[in-house]
Computed example of a mutant assay.
Amino acid sequence: MILIGVVHSALGEILIFRRLRAGTIVPLLAPPPLRERHLRILWANWHLCSVLGWALAALLILFAMSPDLPAHALHIRIIAIATFAGAMLVLFATKGRHPGWFGLLVAAGLAWLGQGAP
């Protein structure tokens, strides 16, 4: 999930937001019908997805390092199910053309398999 977040933010900046900058960190050159405020929130939400993915990755790492991994099985299942739902959302919304669904599916599967409970 750390790798997914890094790739997501980096490729978003390169492929989407780079052309929409006016010498600023936050893109300002909104293509119609978007307005500047729409572009700003899209940019923020784009990177928020990465930040939240890193937070989930940190939780999974902490759970994996716990001496009582089975006690965290429910938490890990919740993360795995939410990640799986995200994978299905991206798959459906992009008709499978965006590779993010596959990365999220792999992350969900690994989390599910690593939960330490039957």
Rank of each mutant, 00 (worst) to 15 (best):
A58T: 15
I76D: 00
L11Y: 02
G100T: 14
G86T: 11
A85C: 10
V26M: 13
R37Y: 09
I4C: 03
V6C: 03
M88H: 12
G53Q: 00
F102K: 05
A111V: 10
W112F: 13
P27Q: 02
L48W: 09
S66F: 02
H98I: 00
W101L: 00
T83C: 09
F84I: 09
P32R: 12
I2C: 01
L60A: 15
A85Q: 01
G96L: 15
A87M: 09
A71F: 12
P32M: 04
P67N: 02
A108P: 00
H47A: 05
L48P: 01
E36R: 15
L11H: 07
L56W: 08
G109V: 13
I79H: 12
R40N: 06
P33W: 12
W46G: 02
L89S: 10
F17G: 05
R37N: 13
N45C: 02
R77Q: 15
F92N: 10
R77N: 11
W54Y: 05
V26T: 09
W54I: 00
A30E: 05
F17C: 07
T83V: 12
G86D: 04
L62F: 09
R77Y: 09
E13M: 07
F17I: 11
V6Y: 05
T24M: 05
A57Y: 06
V51L: 00
Q115E: 08
A22E: 14
L104M: 13
F84R: 11
A111D: 11
R77T: 15
G109K: 10
P32N: 00
L104W: 09
Q115K: 12
L48M: 04
L11R: 07
R21Y: 04
R37D: 15
I25Y: 08
L3Q: 10
P118W: 12
S50C: 04
A44W: 08
L89C: 05
I78Y: 05
F84N: 10
M65S: 11
H8P: 08
L20T: 02
C49G: 05
A55C: 09
R21M: 01
A80P: 13
L34E: 00
F63L: 07
L52I: 15
L74A: 15
